[in-house]
Design a protein around this nucleic acid. Structure first.
Lengths: 213, 213
DNA sequence: TAGATTGTTAATCGATTAACAATC
DNA sequence: TAGATTGTTAATCGATTAACAATC
């Protein structure tokens, strides 16, 4: 029962994977799930799953495991995915459009309610049900709708400029898909999603495995 | 000089960020770069940068730092980005299209040379200069062109099926954008790019910061 | 009951950071 | 020369894993 401890970041990152399995078990009307089940599906060790589970404060039953529904609720609450976060997307290019079209975010507590851009060509066009708005309207809407989360998918060169507008509009958490380090005030959180990091790991591992051959 | 040691994964993930800064310095004709410079730009500690640099086997000069050009070469070699990896993309949906349109991969040693899909609607259409091909042609082309890297952007439900075809075609490294654990033979590498993990970190941090207020 | 599984404490492992000598 | 910066070794920190008692 690792209570008021801070949850380790590696644990946080594994939890969405657990949640996907839990939803799948629920859909198949399975009532109980053990750490061993989860570990087998994800290729982890059961002790790690159990340790991670301890942060939810859910207690399992020896021989049975955890109650699927109970664990879903606890995990969703832990991540703050029990309530929907409305978010704005800034940068309606190809990647932005892909994110706007992704249905899965509803399982992750995220609803991208509006999309913005600077380009006159894009403003007014419709992407997956949202009409792209002028970025200069962002502040007005963000304040009215109390938006705290922004998704940043603009090209590298205009990223900092866009962030400044988002911060000024009261946005407190930025999901950053551009590969630069953003300057933000202390009370604003940035989560960077850097594809090149993953690609680097892939390439190094590929080299390694080819040497072995 | 951490020589024949294995490079820690956290180090590998930071290196592309270093490389971006190095390219920027080179463009601005700056000859030397210090660990302190890099650390300041990325918000890291200089000692961490220096430790990471030790894996390149490049030696710097006290008071000056590292030679930008030399470091670029060493880092590119380390990641295997000194030669271009030709890759195929499987799954020409919105995310696949976004990746096909991304120009930056040329800096990351990746060239997505062909795109495939199962859908009759998509096959034959052109996306950013590549004509989408029938996935059943993948094996023939992959063998002829000695393709080792595959980018997987199909919907969750068809991911395993697509991977089986890729493995059968001799692909040895898969950059997986679907949120499932793929079953592959031992000699095939999978690098998962899981957006939900990053989103989870963002949401937990947002909760934390809102509690503080 | 026997055996599987939980939950906790302790040991191990690996990465980060500190300390400091070397050097330009 | 003085001071900034490198490179290495050692200390610290945090996450994973092992060990094992508790329990259904």
């Amino acid at each position: 029962m690792d209570d008021n401890d801070k949850i380790p970041q590696p644990t946080i990152k594994r939890i969405p994977g657990y949640l996907r399995i839990l939803y799948d078990f629920k859909k198949r009307d399975i009532e109980w799930i053990s750490a061993t089940d989860i570990a087998n599906i994800l290729g982890l060790k059961s002790i790690q799953v159990r340790k991670d589970m301890s942060f939810t404060n859910i207690t399992g039953k020896p021989k049975k495991g955890y109650k699927v529904e109970q664990l879903i609720d606890a995990v969703r609450k832990l991540l703050g995915w029990d309530k929907v976060n409305n978010a704005y997307l800034v940068g309606s290019g190809a990647l932005g459009a892909a994110l706007l079209g992704y249905k899965g975010f509803k399982n992750y507590g995220l609803n991208i309610s509006r999309a913005f851009d600077t380009s006159i060509q894009k403003i007014g066009t419709e992407i997956h049900g949202r009409t792209v708005q002028d970025i200069h309207q962002l502040k007005e809407f963000a304040i009215k709708e109390e938006i705290k989360v922004g998704v940043l998918t603009v090209p590298e060169a205009s990223a900092q400029e866009a962030v400044d507008l988002m911060v000024d509009a009261g946005i407190k958490a930025i999901w950053n898909f551009s590969p630069i380090t953003l300057k933000v005030p202390e009370d604003v959180i940035v989560q960077g999603e850097d594809l090149s990091a993953g690609l680097a790991v892939l390439c190094v591992n590929l080299q390694q495995s080819q040497i072995k051959q």
